[in-house]
């Protein structure tokens, strides 16, 4: 067994973290699945479907002597834009948007990401997408516009990183 997890050893970590059981929150795992099935993942990239558990991975990365240079997080936001729209948000915007909502424990701990960026020189990028609705009941399945955006997000990632 390797001494370090693969997500520490690769230059770029692309993490799809989201909850498949809550409608549009399941976008991110679907993007990872799309990329895995349709693209050749370059050697320097670790593409990970971390579901709702990225926290553990970030803890390990922060304490590891070897870390990725870039961490790309695909994140769900509700900014009143067109559902399925893809755009970047800064790390500082995460707490404002999600500090008090019930999904916070499932998304990346923003303070950990901030520590990684500020203290470990890891570049953190948040690629966001506009959800149609935030569900409050278990209901798997993406809304139409967000489902269409899966391929667009995958294409954007592949063009920029693969």
């Amino acid at each position: 067994m390797e001494k370090l997890p693969v997500y520490c050893r690769k230059e770029i970590l692309i993490a799809g973290c989201g909850n498949k059981l809550f409608g549009d929150d399941g976008f991110r795992p679907e993007v990872v699945e799309y990329l895995t099935n349709h693209c050749n993942i370059p050697e320097n990239i670790c593409l990970l479907d971390v579901d709702t558990g990225i926290r553990k991975i970030l803890f390990t990365i922060s304490l590891s002597e070897v870390r990725p240079e870039v961490i790309v997080i695909i994140d769900a936001v509700d900014k009143g834009r067109k559902p399925g729209e893809i755009f970047d948000i800064s790390l500082a915007e995460i707490p404002k948007e999600k500090t008090d909502d019930f999904l916070i424990h499932q998304v990346p701990s923003s303070n950990l990401l901030k520590e990684l960026q500020d203290l470990c020189s890891v570049k953190v990028r948040i690629m966001a997408y506009q959800v149609k609705t935030i569900l409050e009941t278990v209901q798997p399945g993406l809304s139409g516009p967000v489902k269409k955006a899966v391929r667009l997000m995958a294409k954007k990632i592949a063009e920029e990183y693969f």
């Binding site: 067994m1 001494k3 370090l4 997890p5 390990t60 304490l63 002597e65």
Partner: peptide, 10 residues
């Protein structure tokens, strides 16, 4: 720190 990372990985 190195041992922590390794053991958690295991």
């Amino acid at each position: 720190a190195k041992r922590v990372v390794r053991v958690r990985h295991m």
